[in-house]
């Protein structure tokens, strides 16, 4: 473990050093030196340095963004997982829904932004809707793939042991496709963070996306970089959290398909 950390450290240290030298030497203008960004990071997180409107407001903004990601993501999962199971297991549902869903899928989330803003207005609601749209397809597609990929042998084994109907889904199909569903959810959660930042640039008062947008308007470059850092951290830890939730749910059972 310590060995791994030792191997991982030199590269980011070198990057920060290069950044510092580049600013001091005048190769980059406008960008502040790393130390200034570090101070801004500290002020944003804990406060007590600049006494600006952003001092010590990190938790407010992180929570604003996280809750939007969480709601959009959970709604997407709540609809996409059952729908994916239905499409994956039932040829008629698949024939009925898949063509429409496949046509809607190539529309990028960013193309949905103007429409969503007109319908739902500027505000947090639109950000949640956009997160929902972004997270929906990866979860749906991975669920369909996972469900269709359940080995026929396991279905047969379930059937000859007396499993039928609804229980075939809950006892065999869902547990067997869970690993694939999880990987789709991880991709979806990544998209959710991309999109929440985009959504928050459209005039929402709180959130990490709105923080960096407003920081640009006041030319506070240090705050922009500080905000970016926290967006990265939030995305990283929410992925870890999702995997942890699955681990706890499966109580360390093997997360393998076959």
């Amino acid at each position: 473990m310590t060995r791994r950390i030792l191997w991982a450290l030199p590269f980011p240290i070198a990057l920060v050093a290069l950044w510092h030298v580049a600013v001091v030497q005048g190769w980059m203008t406008i960008i502040p030196v790393p130390k200034d960004v570090a101070v801004e990071l500290w002020d944003f997180a804990v406060g007590g340095v600049y006494d600006s409107v952003y001092s010590g407001t990190l938790l407010t903004h992180v929570w604003a963004s996280s809750s939007r990601v969480l709601f959009g993501f959970l709604w997407a999962a709540a609809i996409a997982v059952p729908l994916g199971i239905l499409i994956g297991r039932n040829a008629r549902t698949s024939a009925m829904l898949e063509p429409t869903l496949s046509l809607l899928r190539p529309i990028p989330v960013t193309a949905w932004v103007p429409l969503v803003l007109i319908v739902f207005g500027l505000g947090a609601g639109s950000a949640v809707i956009l997160v929902f749209i972004a997270a929906f397809y990866p979860i749906l597609l991975s669920t369909i793939t996972g469900v269709k990929g359940v080995p026929e042998r396991l279905i047969e084994a379930g059937a000859m042991l007396g499993t039928s109907g609804w229980r075939m889904l809950t006892r065999v199909v869902v547990p067997a496709s869970l690993p694939t569903i999880l990987s789709g959810m991880r991709i979806a959660l990544g998209f959710a963070w991309v999109v929440v930042v985009v959504g928050e640039t459209t005039g929402v008062p709180t959130g990490l996306g709105s923080t960096i947008t407003e920081a640009r308007e006041t030319s506070n470059t240090a705050l922009i970089i500080a905000g970016m850092t926290f967006i990265g951290l939030a995305g990283f830890y929410s992925d870890k959290l999702l995997v942890l939730v699955f681990r706890l749910m499966r109580r360390n059972r093997p997360l393998i398909a076959t």
């Binding site: 042998r153 396991l154 047969e156 084994a157 059937a159 000859m160 042991l161 869970l178 059972r253 398909a257």
Partner: peptide, 20 residues
């Protein structure tokens, strides 16, 4: 009429549930 628990099948590739 269809598979059922009165006829236990043992497959060449076992067909065990890997998560159990």
């Amino acid at each position: 009429r269809g598979p059922g628990p009165d006829r236990g099948v043992v497959f060449q590739d076992y067909g065990l549930f890997p998560w159990l």
